[in-house]
């Protein structure tokens, strides 16, 4: 009796694995087209910014029938460059899009990877958000001018908290230092692993100022526990009641843009098709809703405009990373 139960249990478990394995095999084999089955690679762990972006895209595409099925695959690691390396080996695959963005440019430069954005096909830039420089509520600095003066006088004594090294927060601190007029290498930058930790670092007065995405700080700014001195947006953004650096006379702008790339070696037709998919997704009401919820701003661009933008940003990021002495 007992043996029979065990045998049945064993058979059941085997059956489940068999079904799962065949399902997996059928999904990984064969050539699908992007319209029938699209794979979105999020080169980040579940729960991160790029993952959220990928899942919002997936949702908008699927619900509106832009593609039949879309799945998200997470390939986390090293600022997205692990994912980029994998994409670099998928030459000619027509059913894959990977999320990319500003953070990846810094990571490519920093890790000196084999694959760069030159080795993949740029598809679109879709949404941006902006960074903000904040100080504790009890900080002596009321405006960015005050802060710039104090910071330039004693860069070492003004620790700046932000995300990981070579990330957008770090680059922004370097650009600001350069614009204010001291050597970016003097920036006393303290790297944290996320916006939450940057916030506690500012609240505990460990750092003189913190840099992170505006959305991560917006409630604290509104509640008055921290004071925002400036944002990195090029133009004032609706709903953000903080002057841009440019408005305050510091010619610094940087956006945390997000977009898609596809593998290299795809035909022009496929490229057109992928651009069309993203364009259609971008036009849906679900995507608009996603942008509002995540407080992203629209920065849709494709084609030559996008190529120029990425080329410019690559040069700019490489230069500032060099200035920062990384």
């Amino acid at each position: 009796m007992k043996k029979a139960i065990l045998t049945v249990a064993f058979a059941a478990v085997t059956a489940v694995f068999f079904v799962a394995a065949t399902a997996n095999a059928s999904s990984s084999g064969g050539t699908a087209t992007a319209r029938s089955k699209l794979t979105l690679i999020a080169p980040a762990a579940p729960g991160g910014g790029w993952d959220g972006f990928a899942r919002e895209s997936q949702q908008a595409m699927r619900v509106n029938g832009v593609v039949n099925t879309a799945r998200v695959v997470n390939v986390p690691g090293a600022g997205g460059t692990i994912g980029l390396n994998q994409l670099g080996q998928m030459d000619g695959r027509e059913d894959v899009l990977m999320i990319t963005g500003a953070v990846m440019l810094g990571a490519i430069e920093l890790a000196d990877t084999q694959t760069t954005l030159d080795d993949v096909t740029l598809i679109a830039r879709v949404a941006d958000d902006y960074n903000v420089l904040v100080v504790p509520a009890d900080s002596p600095y009321e405006t960015i001018e005050d802060f710039a003066a104090g910071w330039a006088a004693d860069p070492g004594g003004h620790a700046i908290a932000g995300g990981s090294l070579g990330g957008i927060d770090h680059l922004l601190s370097g650009l600001l230092a350069q614009e204010i007029g001291f050597d970016p290498q003097q920036v006393n930058y303290v790297a944290y692993s996320g916006g939450g930790e940057v916030l506690t670092s500012v609240l505990s007065n460990t750092a003189a100022a913190g840099i992170s995405g505006y959305n991560e700080f917006s409630d604290q700014i509104e509640a008055g526990t921290i004071r925002a001195l400036g944002t990195s947006a090029a133009e004032p953004v609706d709903g953000i009641d903080v002057p841009t650096f440019i408005e305050s006379g510091l010619d610094v702008e940087m956006s945390n843009w997000r977009g898609y790339v596809a593998p290299a070696g795809i035909s022009d037709d496929t490229r057109e098709e992928l651009v069309a998919i993203v364009t259609e997704m971008h036009a849906t009401a679900d995507w608009e809703d996603a942008m509002t919820r995540n407080r992203w701003s629209d920065s849709f661009s494709t084609g030559a405009e996008l190529d120029d933008f990425v080329a410019e940003e690559t040069v700019r990021v490489a230069a500032i990373i060099k200035e920062l002495g990384l």
């Binding site: 916030l199 506690t200 991560e216 409630d219 604290q220 509640a223 995540n294």
Partner: peptide
């Protein structure tokens, strides 16, 4: 109350809040 994720699971939940367009913090 602070939007500070002190464990891996809390970090996931923070992401979930953002997915719903909410930001944990003093105003939540």
């Amino acid at each position: 109350a602070l939007g500070l994720p002190t464990s891996a699971t809390a970090a996931m939940m923070l992401a979930a809040f953002q997915q719903y367009g909410m930001q944990p913090g003093p105003l939540l």
